[in-house]
Design a protein around this nucleic acid. Sequence first.
DNA 1: CACTGACTGGAGCGATCACTACAGGGACGT
DNA 2: ACGTCCCTGTAGTGATCGCTCCAGTCAGTG
Lengths: 210, 210
Amino acid sequence: MRKTARRHQQGEESRLRILAATLAIAAERGYDGTSIALVTEATGLPASSVYWHFRNKDELLAETLEFSYRRWRETAPTWQDRVGIADPAEEIRDRLHRASRAITERPEFWRLGLMLGLANRPKEPAARRRYIEVRAETRTAIRDWWEQVLPAGAAGADQVADRLSRFHLAVMDGLYIGVHSGRDWDLDRLVDLIADGVHAQAVAWLADAA
Amino acid sequence: MRKTARRHQQGEESRLRILAATLAIAAERGYDGTSIALVTEATGLPASSVYWHFRNKDELLAETLEFSYRRWRETAPTWQDRVGIADPAEEIRDRLHRASRAITERPEFWRLGLMLGLANRPKEPAARRRYIEVRAETRTAIRDWWEQVLPAGAAGADQVADRLSRFHLAVMDGLYIGVHSGRDWDLDRLVDLIADGVHAQAVAWLADAA
DNA sequence: CACTGACTGGAGCGATCACTACAGGGACGT
DNA sequence: ACGTCCCTGTAGTGATCGCTCCAGTCAGTG
């Protein structure tokens, strides 16, 4: 395994190995807990290779975040295409079930994101900035989806959709931490409950806006 | 300000200064982001003083967590004494409102706790272990409270109370992250909604157990 | 077969990390 | 007056941090 199978011109593979290893480490230990030494140890590649592929640690972690985000999106629902469900309550339930599945099946992105988002040093790392961007991007997608789900032409629908998207994200945060802090969760029923709660909130806010 | 007002025999005050400074730093930057140098800079005390009061960094952060927990409990509801509210739904709402107030008024404990809980290195720091204990302690208190709120003698009430306490905690986690990632929150109404959701879940689980 | 350009290997840089040794300094009891 | 004990100040320790330098290796190109 040492230096036998490693041939030349396989930079792309090395790059991926580095990203995957960094993701595994950073999703466990956070930004500061991730050291280049740990990455080189996990990949077998020397530090110089890491720095050939990435400018510095900050960029490595920013790209690692993007990498995990891309992988997460493969599992997560794309908010663009709606399933043809007539009943809004049902559609919301479907969405949240898919989201909860993505969180449980590919937890690294959400986990890393939470840690990057929580830690707040004075000079902000690019990785955290990138996460905030990605999160905002996701929220926009969720908001657009909500605007489609809400009855067309309702008064103040855009503002309601905005609030709902925020709430929606917070629910997923709570869901992640809850699910990953104990087994006994009955996740599907919980998601049903939450979905109905979100739906109720949507109705209430819409009534408010009118 | 330098060495003028600092008299002798004021070890206890120094200790508190160190704890407060460490809390402020650690709640912003997490375990690894907190360095002794930052603490000495913030307090004006040398490193040797820090190490006179605390055995090492790990113990410093463990005690800082306890310190913040104690301060948090001053604001948070004590789960022991119930207000004399007859309607369970109303009582749950009251509880969650108090909890959300504690989270918004003294966010350091919850914030630090989330970071300690998320970061997961192989050799576990005492601070994280201490947090897990404190969290378990809180959950036990919440569970006991639920057992009082649930109709006495209901079948499987203890198991339902256990699940509800877990859910309850997850809600508070999501609430924290949600509240601290944006302004436009209409917190009180949100808490009402969530409380009703929790209540609905309690009823459903109780029906299940029967 | 020489050359190029993409990568690797190893050695080592200064800075910062957690932590320590030790010499005081000042409020006390005696 | 003197010693004791609590705490501070200075000046370090070795280890690890992120990062760099640069020679060496090997596939592809002409």
